[in-house]
Write a protein that binds this DNA or RNA. Structure first.
Lengths: 335, 335
DNA sequence: ATAGATTCCCAAAACGTTTTGAATAGTCAA
DNA sequence: TTGACTATTCAAAACGTTTTGGGAATCTAT
């Protein structure tokens, strides 16, 4: 027996009235409204979500696809961001759906099924690439979405991102001011927007201060990637005196490679990362890094999504959060 | 216009026939079946999920609640596990819903709304506690669920877990065999089952080899927690010569504390963790640890969930995965 | 030729809501 | 008293599927 029908029957009212009472319509008498509410509470009435979705023509859900290729996914703090986001979404009665996908084609396939089956009202795009087919697809479909990270067409959609470019520019500038002349960049794959922007910040600083030596090496954004990249850079004829790493994970790997060479970071060579992972404060020596200067990126992301669902224009929903330097020990002056 | 209606109309068939054709019923002629399939494919037909759920009386979704109190959530590898799980679930047409919750009461409230609103057919319980109200609630409701980690009533429900107890017993035994006589345990909060079991393994080994010195300290399962615990332990009158840490994160913090004291892990003191985080291979020195000897815990979890939804008895779905030691450098003999 | 099977198809009901349009009763002004 | 209005309530339609219970051909065996 339908719950609403059940409620109505036990109250001697019509389904309509019960429904409207619970939704707070003004055309039901205050007395009945209260009576209905009390009864609903008593039996823990909760509208059947499928029925409601069907009738309202809304899924009341937001989806996020998780690219899991090839190794592990992104920064370890990612789940926190999602949790904060989901928490805010829940306040609006929106569910957060997680759709892991193994490869790019599979990801697009997932999007298609998702939208064709009306399983979500909006989507979150993470790990954005400069040229991102997902963004193109979602724009074409006209479904609200917010990206976590920018793309080459960021002016055309809602996004939230840290200002990695400024962060890396500042860090590289600072290294230069400490006397470093060979400031290397350990980059993440350049199709990823964040990697591209961080590299660009580094590049801009070198240009600015007139350094033409621009050693760099691209690797996977993992400890192993950072380790390999650092090894390679330090084997060059004139090795760098500073390593600006795209992520803390890479920096942690790099630290390990330096240690193997008998180099002490912060004294023999400078190292700076990005993300301020919990582990970064406990490396040896403690890692100088930087972080997005906002405690609640996930929540803000949710807020933007909600605004977007409410019809706000995507051009009003483009947030670039400042990046704050977190100097610790590994970024000392050139010796 | 309804898509199914649309399809039916354009094919000159009834909605019924189209629906049954797509579901592969044998009472539609092979020829029409193919015709329908082709047409469906052409317009990317995908059944409206709300309508299907409503009629089938199944949400076609699995929920996982994420306890996000107080600091960050669990091991950094957790998202991978979820992704693997979601990937397998998707193959069965099941969505994975993420429900972050801030506290215990909120978590129970979330469960209630979830089940009352029929938003999920099954749930995954993570971060299990020895005495877990969530398990009691779900059992009472009779909804299928699988826990990630055991509880005190594990014999009554489906679960998947690593054999942390055996892992820690083996590790402690090994340390003893290397000559260690003061083997400390840096424990995680004991209401968490995994923490309880790991401590129990350590304790069992000490008993086994006749060591009555059992230094220990409980802390949050984070780098900061491990750091504080290690500091405290090393300040005792006769400090331990080995630290068996409940998690790698804690071990990483402990390594940092030891370094501050001028102690070199693997030479002056032994350290062993658990999880084999990617970062564990890149600490200084590389961290000896252990890991669940299965590449696909998430997938297995999904498999169990699917079996449970298929009506399999929960007592046939209780998996304890072996834990494999990953010896690196930090676990050397006593000097 | 005909009863009984078999094959293929369909109309209608149902799932549990929300929404539309209207009915009923009560109130107020003339 | 009547007509217009307001305040409350409700029956029925709709959302897009799946499932039930046939129905109309066609085939098989007598």
């Amino acid at each position: 027996m339908s719950s609403l029908k059940h409620l109505a029957q036990s109250l001697g009212l019509s389904i309509t009235t019960v429904s409207r009472a619970l939704d707070g319509y003004s055309d039901v008498a205050p007395a009945t409204r209260e009576r209905v509410r009390a009864a609903a509470q008593a039996i823990h009435y909760q509208p059947n979500s499928a029925a409601r979705s069907l009738r309202r023509r809304k899924a009341e859900a937001v989806a996020v696809t998780l690219p899991t290729e090839p190794g592990r996914f992104g920064p370890p703090t990612f789940l926190n961001m999602l949790a904060a986001c989901g928490h805010r979404l829940a306040e609006e009665g929106l569910d957060l759906m997680l759709l892991p996908t193994a490869g790019r084609v599979e990801e697009m396939e997932t999007y298609r099924r998702l939208l064709d089956g009306r399983r979500a009202d909006a989507v979150i795009v993470v790990r954005t690439r400069l040229d991102d087919e997902r963004v193109a697809f979602l724009k074409e479909r006209g479904i609200p979405f917010v990206t976590h990270g920018r793309t080459a067409r960021s002016d055309e959609h809602a996004f939230i991102d840290g200002d990695g470019e400024a962060g890396f520019r500042e860090a590289a500038r600072h290294l230069a001011s400490l006397g470093h002349r060979r400031i290397a960049h350990i980059a993440a794959p350049q199709d990823l927007t964040f990697a591209h922007l961080r590299r660009r910040g580094w590049l801009a600083a070198l240009e600015e201060v007139g350094l033409s030596d621009r050693p760099e090496c691209t690797a996977q954004p993992t400890e192993a990637g950072g380790y390999e990249a650092a090894r390679w850079l330090m084997q060059q004829r004139t090795p760098p005196t500073a390593l600006l790493c795209a992520t803390d994970s890479m920096a942690i790997g790099a630290l390990s490679a330096l240690k193997e060479k008998g180099l002490m970071a912060g004294r023999d060579i400078a190292v700076i990362g990005h993300d301020n992972l919990p582990a970064a404060a406990f490396t040896d020596p403690p890692l100088s890094t930087m972080e997005i200067a906002a405690p609640d990126v996930g929540r803000q992301l949710a807020e933007m999504l909600i605004a977007r669902l409410g019809g706000r224009d995507s051009r009003e929903l483009q947030t670039i959060l400042p990046v704050r330097q977190v100097p610790r020990i590994t970024h000392g002056p050139v010796n």
